[in-house]
Design a protein around this nucleic acid. Sequence first.
DNA 1: AGATTTATGTTCGTTATCCAACTTAATGGA
DNA 2: TCCATTAAGTTGGATAACGAACATAAATCT
Lengths: 245, 245
Amino acid sequence: MHTLHAPQQNRLLAALPEEDLDRITSMLEIVEMPLGLVLYESGGQLKHVYFPTTSIISLLYVLENGASAEIAVVGNEGVLGISLFMGGETTPSRAVVQSVGFGYRLSAKNLKMEFKRADTMFKLLLRYTQALITQTSQTAVCNRHHSVEQQLCRWLLLSLDRLNSDVLCMTQELIANMLGVRREGVTEAAGKLQRDGLISYARGNITVLDRPALEVRVCECYQVVKTEFDRLLPEVERKQENASI
Amino acid sequence: MHTLHAPQQNRLLAALPEEDLDRITSMLEIVEMPLGLVLYESGGQLKHVYFPTTSIISLLYVLENGASAEIAVVGNEGVLGISLFMGGETTPSRAVVQSVGFGYRLSAKNLKMEFKRADTMFKLLLRYTQALITQTSQTAVCNRHHSVEQQLCRWLLLSLDRLNSDVLCMTQELIANMLGVRREGVTEAAGKLQRDGLISYARGNITVLDRPALEVRVCECYQVVKTEFDRLLPEVERKQENASI
DNA sequence: AGATTTATGTTCGTTATCCAACTTAATGGA
DNA sequence: TCCATTAAGTTGGATAACGAACATAAATCT
């Protein structure tokens, strides 16, 4: 259980040329991400960008009355804190740890220094940002046109893709906040999926039993996002399985 | 009616230092944007970035069944074609001219050359991109939580901000496509606004009669987007009124 | 002027989601 | 071991938006 961690577990970092990655590695700091940790609050100042490895971060927009909706998820395929290199420094969204795990962080200062040395990383992060925009946009359309059940399927599959496990640690209440619907709506949709044997639910632990069936029920939005990530970040392949020592 | 056009009518271009703008101006080409023109189709190849001056472009996501939803609008505050400098080259969205008018275009080649000469423009475009992400994200939340009437108010105000006029040329049918709702829903909401004297509607021409009242009825989403644009692009002030000769 | 097209207005039954109140059951500390 | 807490399931009524069909009226064309 010692050197279970490696920067290459994050697929963006893994996509860097060896030379660049070696240099950056020395500036990376491993951090644990407990469930529910708020990495930043709307308008807050972020001091680091985070490269999740085994954790998943949820980007939420919160309304004045407290209602919220998830606009994107960030897992081992991505990075949290794009405003630091896009130039805005902050954003009006909230970032919450959706799934416990680890990640690496890099200080804003070191990030900017790295951009000056070589633009490899910068270009990669921009492409990632574009993929993230697709995720957000597709979420907007999905919110408008698809049922709670379809959106739940989408959410489960997107989360699953960012984990190595079939088990998600997540209450229905929290999923409801993510999807921006009522908890009862999630209960109903999840109940149906459970009755049909696609998932099994037990007090905050969802086990996906039949992923292919989920892919049949999900709306097209899932595939659009996945395809766009694959297109924009083709070099970012699944090497993380044997990345740890 | 001769030199009615000037690059400074686009607020991004206007925000460039004089030196940079002078150099870029020679590479710009004025283009007319007729209503309904599709500037790019999902996955299509864009050869230019467009800087609208008097036109408004709508970014739409279209589902397989033809249903759609607008994820952002681009007017004289912005630029169309961010995928060209973000590195993705294309995006899965559609861009349609929502309001007739003019704009300047710059070839992808010249854009990239400019980035090599000086990064002023690049940095500005990245900040703009971040503002656009906010617009898209807020649209996602708005789609989930707010009524058709609130969304119509938001849409009217965002469009109004990108025009110099109080008259929008737009049928209810098209607005319905933008908002991703039925035409009848727009008729109902617009009818209410008209009865209350906020707008007046006449076969594709909406005149805004009482903008302050619209700002009272609109959901918070409008202000969030506006504030974020102002924060990210503060130098981009309204100088275009006397920008033309 | 008359005919066609296009834009808007209206109705009615249907449905998905919401809202609120409550039940059941598992979990984890005292 | 018991109790407070938290997660999940259930119900019934309200509502916003949908889907479809149709009515009206302005604009356009011949």
